[in-house]
Design a protein around this nucleic acid. Structure first.
Ligand code: NAD
Ligand code: NAD
Lengths: 227, 227
DNA sequence: AACTGTATGTGAACAGTTTCACAAACCAAA
DNA sequence: TTTGGTTTGTGAAACTGTTCACATACAGTT
């Protein structure tokens, strides 16, 4: 169990103030704020109000303030928020004040795209390992990464202190691979396989199913709900 | 308000029974049920209960029944649901009883992956056009698709009756391209650019930001909420 | 035809999330 | 130091989504 977790000595981490669980939507919006604050910072904007922050994402100012209030009071009344300070605070909350070691499993269409994704390193994600079971791919170079043999999965994940696995294999082997990933002590998985993934309660999974995203749109198209 | 909406002649579409708007989560789960019912159908399963349907996705039986009840009564008391009938009904609800013409804009890492995605045609999505602005790519073949010039975007989208656009370009040109897509009459966009996209109220946008998905996981890792 | 067991469909209760509205706090100007 | 103008932080209200619990309906059996 590589409880490598909260080692980093001196950081007093920002935790939700009451013990109430923070909602998924709040976390999602924090990411949104963080992204936007980055853009504002590049623009040279020094200060921003909840009103501006909201308008730029089609949310309400109250929503923005409530989201932030779960974690503390970061603003100045009458003035707003310091762009760079708020960005740092949010980074700390969502764990972006450190770097994360990522492994990609499956070097096919989507796996290769992810390996070549320039934005990951900028956001704190370092793709350290990539795996496949195809002999023709193993050992070869894909966008600068040497493809490892899936048979060494468990040991390699441990040896490289991988925090996060991105799963880009077909549905059929997905669960079996996930079981190994879990056995290696990895606690977070982002899966692109369009199938349900079962994990123990201390492991976090996010499933991205692009067809399902498209289906959401087709539902809207055929039903035209007033939006 | 171009209420061009519900033309399609003869299909008596399954609509929500009351006029209450159906929640995003319900639609999302319908996709999930549809996917699972497909697997069950392949397995030769004829009948399924809300209990089974729920357990396979870690939901509750009541949730499954409530979701379906917004659209009608599809089950048989004492028995459950016919796998194939229910699948057909859900297909009709989310618009999977027809085919959809898709265009991909941006033939880079993620764009190429999408073009090569074998599952899209099986789910009713036909990639008919792909665009780029890179002279070296225009006219060339990418996974069997000829790359079109972005300068012909509007005309080509119209001429090919594209229903749905997948946006796989960098953030900077995203909004400008979306404006053109909207002008061409397309009402649904799936965007991979990590930036806010603004559209008129009758156009539907879904934004997929992979870094944000990862950030959701890092939040979980640093906060370890009991799950 | 009646009976038994089972699973649906759905109001009503509950839980969670968003919006409202306003006191409190701060900046800047005088 | 006081005042005016502005925006935060937050309880409470309003709303939305989920779970409960049970009457209802059907299949299969005798
Ligand atoms: N291509 C897309 O745009 C796209 C979009 C959304 C979701 N997906 C999903 O992502 C997954 C991968 O899709 P893809 O298009 O990249 O497929 P792909 O066939 O191009 O790639 C899959 C890769 O996984 C490898 N693989 C297969 N079994 C393996 C195993 N047991 N261990 C290790 N590696 C193994 C294969 O060798 C291959 O390199 C699928 O589940 C697919 O449904 C793909
Ligand atoms: N690669 C990934 O895994 C990944 C994952 C998530 C999100 N994204 C996002 O998807 C988008 C594309 O990423 P990528 O890695 O494929 O980038 P990329 O640079 O490989 O591809 C972008 C493509 O868009 C084309 N393009 C640029 N400007 C254009 C314009 N004005 N009109 C038409 N085409 C134009 C480029 O020529 C290029 O082919 C980015 O917004 C990125 O943030 C990528």
């Amino acid at each position: 169990m590589g409880e490598s977790g909260q080692q980093s000595a001196s950081i007093e981490r920002l935790k939700p103030q009451d013990k109430r669980r923070i909602s998924d939507s709040t976390i999602h919006r924090l990411s949104l704020y963080h992204r936007l604050l980055g853009e504002l910072e590049s623009d040279g904007t020094k200060t921003v109000s909840s009103k501006q922050l909201a308008e730029l994402q089609r949310l309400t100012p109250a929503q923005v303030r409530k989201d932030l209030s779960f974690f503390g009071a970061f603003g100045t009344r009458g003035l707003g928020y310091s762009v760079s300070d708020l960005r740092k605070k949010i980074a700390e909350i969502i764990g972006l004040d450190r770097r994360w070691n990522v492994a990609v499993i499956g070097v096919g269409n989507i796996g290769s795209a992810l390996i070549g994704f320039k934005e990951f390193p900028n956001r704190g994600f370092d793709v350290k390992l990539v795996f496949d079971n195809d002999q023709r791919k193993i050992g070869s170079n894909h966008k600068g990464m040497r493809v490892s043999d899936i048979r060494n999965l468990k040991e390699d994940l441990k040896a490289n202190q991988i925090d996060l696995v991105i799963l880009a294999v077909p549905s059929s082997p997905a669960q079996k691979i996930v079981d190994e990933v879990v056995a290696a002590g990895v606690k977070a998985i982002l899966s692109f396989a369009p199938t349900h993934i079962d994990v123990p309660p201390d492991v976090y999974v996010r499933s991205e199913d692009m067809s399902m995203e498209l289906e959401y749109l087709t539902y809207a198209l055929v039903n035209n709900p007033g939006k």
